[in-house]
């Protein structure tokens, strides 16, 4: 295993709406023996709402700089944080002038491009590795799972670490822990609608419906995902989607770290499985 210690950027939803993602990420990495150092005083990455790239670069330079001081690569469980960190890293590495300009805003934004931003799934599969994880598994998670990747893991190409059309890393983790991936290729990387939730709720709900419906029709016990905005849209807003469109899914939505945590023998309450909005009790029965 090549990784022992990482800077950790939990991201804004970790403090409220995606608390269970934060809890399960910390628990899983502790179990895997990788120390996570939460980025002191981390700030918001600007998410999809910072459309001005200068703003994205400045906000994310600060987080990168904090991790660089400790000489640690920076890992985040949030797909949007990852995308913003990675594109900022690329831009600043390639452009000395931009680096100097951003440092000029405040000395704390001095970033020299010596570390690498990573998404949790990338670290799990490509850095820690399936073999290493396998050696620590104690339970089988015998679930039919719809692996949902969302937007920023396989695209845009500049920052992607998985295939843009048919990503596989989460599929591999699910198989590893004894799960079965249901046919889900058509929906794996379709947008959940999250960024439109507060301005065009009708479109967002329709986008979420397609994903939930496909998973249900494929016979999935749950959808596994890796992004807190997807989690908000598909889990926390699922009752609203059901009500607005007069449908019923009752589809449990879990973060991939929660599923992996179960297979590593971590207590479900430590993984925050009581915090997912759609009840997860029925899937716990299939962990043996």
């Amino acid at each position: 295993m090549s990784v022992e210690k990482l800077a950790y950027l939990p991201g804004c939803p970790s403090e409220a709406t995606a608390l269970e993602q934060h809890m399960s990420t910390e628990a899983v990495f502790e179990k895997l023996g990788v120390e996570l150092v939460e980025l002191e005083e981390w700030n918001c990455c600007g998410a999809a709402e910072a459309e001005d790239q200068n703003l994205v670069y400045a906000l994310n330079a600060r987080n990168l700089a904090i991790a660089e001081k400790d000489n640690l690569d920076i890992m985040t469980p949030c797909s949007i944080c990852y995308y913003n960190l990675a594109r900022t890293n690329n831009a600043l590495k390639a452009n000395e002038e931009l680096r100097a300009e951003i440092k000029g805003i405040d000395p704390s934004l001095e970033y020299n491009g010596t570390i690498t931003p990573k998404h949790v799934i990338d670290v799990l599969v490509n850095d820690i590795g399936l073999e290493e994880i396998k050696s620590k598994l104690v339970k089988k998670v015998e679930l039919k799972v719809a692996p949902y990747y969302g937007c920023y893991l396989g695209r845009p190409p500049e920052t992607a670490f998985d295939d843009p059309d048919d990503p596989v890393l989460m599929d591999q983790l699910i198989e590893l822990i004894g799960g079965e991936n249901v046919p889900f290729s058509a929906m794996k990387t379709k947008c959940c609608g999250g960024p439109l939730m507060m301005t065009r709720g009708d479109l967002a709900f329709e986008m979420a419906r397609k994903i939930l419906e496909t998973a249900k029709n494929a016979g999935a016990d749950c959808i596994a995902l890796a992004c807190p905005l997807c989690g908000m849209m598909l889990d926390a807003k699922q009752p609203d989607v059901e009500k607005a469109l007069n449908v019923k899914f009752e589809m449990p939505i879990v973060y991939i770290t929660q599923l992996l945590g179960l297979a590593l023998g971590i207590d479900s309450s430590k993984l925050g499985l009581q915090k997912n909005v759609v009840d997860t009790k029925k899937i716990l029965g299939k962990v043996v």
Binding site: C151, Y152, G154, R155, P156, P157, P195, L196, R200
Partner: peptide
């Protein structure tokens, strides 16, 4: 204003236009 910023267009553009 109804673009969801999902970057599918960007990923697929054969001309490397960063459409998103």
């Amino acid at each position: 204003w109804i673009c969801a910023i999902c970057q599918t267009c960007t990923a697929r553009c054969p001309q490397n236009v960063v459409v998103g």
